[in-house]
């Protein structure tokens, strides 16, 4: 479903120093599977999520990103979104003055139009919002607030998963979704993500720790270091990393 081949990327020189961050990432996530990417700070995990989503701050210098057989490497962020790629941000952005539901309805219908589908009606959208909010314990009051404004770190992550439920993407990238969550919130978020699992949908879970993976039970765990995938294995790999740390990959950074 998602195929990343020999992906090289660097910070766009306009944004800072000319720094290569991804140095040949190879990764394939078939439909229906959940893959985790773990790695030490600074290994390029978050860059990978930005590059997949098409952030202009990064330049792809080599390699390809194929999504359902299509090369999406040159597409605009919204075109990738319309194809079903959803990024749950590590630091969800606050957008003052724009109510969450207004924003989501705009987004849902923009995606639908781009795919040639009928737009969702206001009553259907509201009904769906109420159902999904209930699943995540999100109050009506939270929905009325502007996008992410005034939310705690944990609430923002919950709202990201709520947005995923609303937009029903084909593929989710969860970037450090567990950071800033206490144990109860982690459980709620994990349940939300698990509810999104189905045979047609793929997921890439980027995380530093294995605690979210205890709830999500990934099919494959990859270790990223020095801008590359250096090891892949089953869920047991995550436990090994938790016990042994990332020290043994330190040499890969070169």
């Amino acid at each position: 479903m998602l195929e990343i081949k020999n992906l090289h990327a660097r910070v766009n020189p306009e944004e800072g120093a000319d720094l290569a961050i991804l140095k040949g990432v190879d990764l394939t996530v078939p439909a229906g599977e959940v893959h985790a990417v773990m790695g030490p700070n600074g290994c390029g995990k978050s860059t990978l999520s930005y590059v997949l989503a098409g952030h202009e701050g990064y330049e792809t210098t080599d390699g390809a990103i194929r999504f359902e057989g299509e090369d999406i490497g040159e597409l605009e962020p919204e075109e990738r979104a319309a194809r079903g790629l959803f990024l749950s941000f590590q630091y969800p952005v606050e957008i003052p003055g724009v109510p969450t539901l207004t924003f989501l309805k705009e987004a849902a219908n923009a995606q639908r139009r781009a795919r040639g589908e009928a737009e969702i009606s206001a009553p259907d959208f509201m009904k769906l919002a109420r159902e999904n909010a209930a699943k995540l314990g999100i109050s009506n009051d939270m929905l009325k607030r502007p996008v992410n404004v005034g939310f705690s770190g944990g609430e923002k992550k919950r709202m990201e998963i709520f947005q995923a439920l609303m937009l029903a993407p084909r593929f989710l990238i969860l970037d450090e979704t567990d950071s800033g969550l206490d144990i109860d919130a982690l459980k709620v978020v994990a349940e939300g993500v698990n509810a999104l699992r189905n045979p047609e949908r793929g997921m890439l879970v980027i995380t530093h720790y294995q605690r979210l993976l205890d709830h999500l039970k990934p099919d494959v765990v990859h270790v990223m270091a020095g801008g590359r995938i250096v090891e892949s294995g089953g869920p047991e790999l995550a436990h090994k990393l938790e016990a042994e740390g990332y020290d043994k990959y330190a040499g890969e950074a070169a």
């Binding site: 919204e78 957008i95 724009v98 924003f103 705009e106 987004a107 923009a110």
Partner: peptide
């Protein structure tokens, strides 16, 4: 950051700008 976030959710650039400006003026 706001622009990218809105575009990641599927809005084209002009719509995203209009939305952000409307929010600014709310």
């Amino acid at each position: 950051d706001q622009l990218f976030y809105a575009r990641q959710r599927g809005l084209d650039e002009e719509t995203a700008v209009a939305l952000l400006v409307n929010g600014f003026c709310r």
